[in-house]
Design a protein around this nucleic acid. Structure first.
Lengths: 349, 349
DNA sequence: GGCGCTTCTGCAATCGTTTGCATAGAATAG
DNA sequence: CTATTCTATGCAAACGATTGCAGAAGCGCC
């Protein structure tokens, strides 16, 4: 009781059960249980439990080159969009006996690349990428490492890898149509970064929908934010409003950008939704708490994460299984940031 | 180029450099560089770099029983309070060559315990607990496992383990004094769970401060929420207001509970801050975006995380170093959820 | 009763490092 | 110039599992 007891190894269990270590290994591995007699299996299990044996995953991993571990790369853990996705991933992974290792990249490709190397070195069995840009060198790296990957939320150009994303075009269209129905015609877009699939697709959906309601212009009223951050959204909104003064509504490419639009509107003395309507995208947690509560496009965060995890697990099982791209349907949730446009022109400054 | 190249081991480097593997190991380890001639060290380094050698942490870990990995247990990753803490942890850890492994426990002791076992099995070098209850069995378990621990945000009774927390009593007092200064006397408290140090300490600070401003009553107007969640806050607020109808201000034990108070106030037809003032605690991200913007007690999230990481690293270095309890000072941030109490009585329903 | 088949278990190599110990040669002392 | 101490390296044994291979029973079958 005094000594810090030595770790109990498979060898100890073998001795206690009167069998060889290799037999213990087989008896304790559900995959290979069939190879040993029922009686022996029971004896081993009993001994293991009696001694409190806990298999050592790092020793096992050294031999098997597997770790029951999945790396998850997230661009920004502080963005409330991601926790629900992680929850979904963890749930699906846990069911299968895997553990997620979350790595935060802070939108920094270098950090992302470092994290990937670390995960690979620790023998992650697969990677879920929430950080992908449309042409992402990380994927090439994963291929080289023979590391299964699936993308979540953001996709890449050319479907050479499995992904589960939202139908971003449809989502943007939902927002545009909602605004059109309210009576808006002069609708602008604060776009996300073009190098991200979400930025590109939502923009595309916006343009198409605007044309569809017969309000398309050349060029369309769009300003692109450099990042998905509040400040970038404010800057883009400023640019958009400067070049398109008549605008009565803004479709923002995500909720954080929408928040930036709020800020810029306030700065200009425009009340939302009275003077200007604003929509977001993602329905991130707390979007309903903003002032005004944000009308936004909801995506099934949790399901997205879970689905991605399942896809990855399937690919780990069978590395030559075909790549799949799953597109989940978004849904509009109307709150307080959108309203009919004012009858008259916006107040003169 | 075609074959999936085999992993490059220390043995390969040894051959290339014309030395023994053990020499390579020494040459590549900064701690033991001194044991090796400068010339050899250079030769080895060159060979390693030329071959693109990446040491295998799992093999090394098997031998050394260390992993350069720290487990972080978080009660709820979806609570925006935690991401900034994690950021701080990751920053401090990264500087020292360690990696954080984040585990989400969903406030479930069972999941927490499972996560701890997994982390221990994977040879985490230490644990940062953001989940601690005042009497937490996880700590006993860590002690048994010989696993260094430090607590962050929440502490335990009796200082047998290092911790970095906020001065919660002072924080609560800040809120009370602010309200008193505005003219409130009938101030209630929506407390956090008593089994958590934050719940207990903030309550304690509330009671003391209330007495200090000469508004103490017996019993003090307090309702305890079972968890730190919005709904629990709403329920507690309902209970508080039911038993203490005269209340003009609520000090909530955290921001989520404050949000619950918002909800309950609205349900009762009370406008915040006109009819009732509400304060939060934590100044979580987006607290400034709520409707109304939340007056709250700011705690230095990031610094807290960083400090905890440094403490842990120190304890890993020297396991017999004395336990330290660091208390960071909070700061009041006044926003729109507090105002002078109305002259007359609150509207009759 | 001998033969071939299964079925179960043991043997030993392996995964990629680290490190205590031994040793060869160099450096220093006497 | 010998005796002694260092220093730099090599050797080989861990760390704790998994698994291909081989051998020993056990079995049925002719």
């Amino acid at each position: 009781m005094g000594m810090p007891r030595k770790r109990i190894t498979i060898e100890d269990v073998a001795r206690a059960a009167g069998v060889h270590a290799s037999t213990v290994s087989r008896a304790l591995n559900p995959q290979r249980q069939a190879l040993v007699t029922g009686a022996v299996a029971a004896r081993v299990a009993a001994a293991a439990r009696r001694l409190g044996y806990r298999p050592d995953p790092v020793a096992a991993g050294l031999r098997t080159r597997r770790s029951s571990t999945i790396g998850v790369l997230v661009p920004d853990i502080a963005n409330p969009l991601f926790p629900p996705i992680l929850r979904g991933i963890e749930a699906a992974l846990g069911d299968a006996g895997y553990t997620a290792i979350i790595a935060n990249t802070d939108n920094d490709p270098q950090r992302a690349s470092d994290a990937l190397e670390r995960l690979a070195a620790r023998r992650a069995d697969g990677i879920i990428l929430a950080t992908a840009s449309r042409r992402d060198s990380l994927l090439e790296r994963c291929r080289k490492l023979g590391l299964p990957v699936v993308l979540v939320n953001r996709s890449i150009d050319g479907g050479s890898v499995s992904a589960v994303v939202t139908d971003d075009e449809a989502g943007a269209a939902l927002a545009v149509r909602h605004l059109a129905l309210l009576g808006h015609r002069a609708i602008g877009h604060v776009a996300g970064p073009r190098r991200l699939s979400t930025g590109a697709q939502r923009r595309r959906g916006f343009v198409a929908a605007l044309r569809a309601i017969g309000a398309g212009t050349q060029p369309p009223p769009i300003a692109e934010a450099e990042t998905y951050e509040i400040e970038a959204g404010a800057r883009a909104a400023a640019a958009l409003l400067a070049t398109n003064p008549g605008i009565t509504a803004i479709v923002a490419a995500n909720d954080l950008l929408a928040l930036g639009c709020y800020d810029e509107a306030k700065r200009l003395g425009l009340a939302c939704p009275r003077d200007i309507s604003i929509t977001g995208f993602n329905d991130m947690p707390f979007a309903d708490r903003f002032d005004p509560p944000l009308t936004t496009v909801r995506i099934p965060h949790r399901a997205m994460g879970a689905e991605a995890a399942r896809l990855l697990l399937a690919e780990i099982e069978n590395p030559r299984s075909p790549k799949r791209a799953i597109e989940l349907q978004p849904e509009l949730v109307v709150r307080g940031s959108t309203a009919r446009p004012r009858a008259g022109p916006p107040p003169a400054r």
